[in-house]
């Protein structure tokens, strides 16, 4: 205030970097370090040789790029007695995830469409039960499902694990689509009914084309969820169909002599690669999916 007697303030206020601003960026940068350092360590470790790792300089860059750990992780690392790398797990995860995503998204879309526009009798009850079911820990269902699948001959099979993922994926996908279709004006539905279109025609020709954004979001949520699953794959997939996450854990826990940390980290990155790629290339959709899915809480 006293200064204004000397200088007459005029025009834009001189920008001064305040202590608050510095603190803000300091906080953001240290947070960014906390979140990125693990990824960085993962990558550099996977590119080092074991002698370098033994030097215990976890943050140091590798002396020279050495991709041999990646090769071993992909095709030669041992899980138990089998030494075929994580390649088989990658293939299994693809085979499990793709049909699970397609089927669950399709059913979820049909459910959401039927529930929001046709309102079949008991639809709300079913939706309520479905949402309640989503909250139940899987452990409650596991044993009966194992016995049931065994009785049907589906236990430890690819079809079995796909069915399990669809069953447990239904609540989220149904919720996403129901909430999405509720925002579409009902006049549109009424108009198409007046035009004589039936249940499936309205779904396929009007609603599905309008719900492309939701299809993308739902497919992405389901893809990352199923790809990252460990528990269901462990219980239902069987030895020959173990997904990548289970395979990864087995590889890391199999030690013959020295633990090969570079191979472990390479295998870990390989497992995280697909969901990370989805996330980095379509972050906004991903965020939308989280926000939409979290509303159910």
């Amino acid at each position: 205030m006293t200064r204004s007697a000397e200088i007459n303030p005029r025009g834009a206020k001189p920008t001064r970097i305040t202590a608050g601003r510095i603190g803000l960026y300091a906080f953001l940068i240290s947070a960014a370090l906390f979140f990125t350092v693990p990824l960085y360590v993962m990558i550099v470790t996977s590119l080092k040789t074991m002698p370098e790792i033994r030097a215990a300089r976890i943050f140091a860059l590798p002396d020279h790029l050495d991709f041999s750990a990646w090769k071993v992780a992909w095709a030669g690392a041992c899980a138990g007695a089998e030494c075929a790398g994580i390649r088989a797990g990658f293939l299994n995860s693809v085979l499990i995830t793709l049909p699970s995503v397609v089927i669950s998204v399709l059913f979820g879309a049909i459910n959401g469409y039927a529930l929001s526009f046709w309102r079949p009798r008991g639809g709300n009850l079913m939706f309520g039960l479905l949402m309640a079911g989503a909250l139940v820990p899987y452990q409650v269902f596991l044993y009966p499902l194992v016995r049931g699948f065994a009785a049907l001959g589906l236990y430890n099979s690819l079809i079995g694990i796909v069915i399990v993922h669809v069953l447990f994926g239904l609540p989220l996908v149904t919720l996403l689509f129901r909430n999405y279709f509720v925002t579409i004006p009902e006049e549109l539905f009424k108009a198409s009914r007046l035009d004589g279109a039936g249940f499936w025609r309205i779904f396929l020709e009007i609603m599905l084309p309008m719900s492309v954004p939701m299809l993308v979001v739902a497919a992405m949520m389901q893809f990352t969820g199923i790809w990252n699953d460990f528990l269901l794959g462990l219980v239902f997939a069987g030895r020959d169909n173990l997904p990548m996450t289970v395979q990864l854990n087995n590889i890391v826990n199999t030690t013959t002599g020295e633990r090969l940390y570079n191979v472990n980290m390479a295998a870990t990155i390989l497992t995280a690669l697909v969901p990370l790629a989805i996330y980095f290339f379509s972050g906004r959709w991903f965020v939308r999916g989280i926000a939409a899915g979290a509303v159910k809480g």
């Binding site: 947070a31 960014a32 979140f35 990125t36 693990p38 990824l39 360590v41 993962m42 990352t224 790809w227 990252n228 699953d229 460990f230 996450t245 990864l248 854990n249 890391v252 472990n264 980290m265 870990t268 497992t271 995280a272 969901p275 990370l276 989805i278 996330y279 980095f280 972050g283 991903f286 965020v287 989280i290």
Partner: peptide
């Protein structure tokens, strides 16, 4: 983007890192 990416990864990956 940096604050959220770990959420895209599996718990197994997180645990091992």
């Amino acid at each position: 983007t940096l604050f959220l990416y770990p959420y895209a990864m599996s718990f197994v990956v997180t645990g091992l890192v």
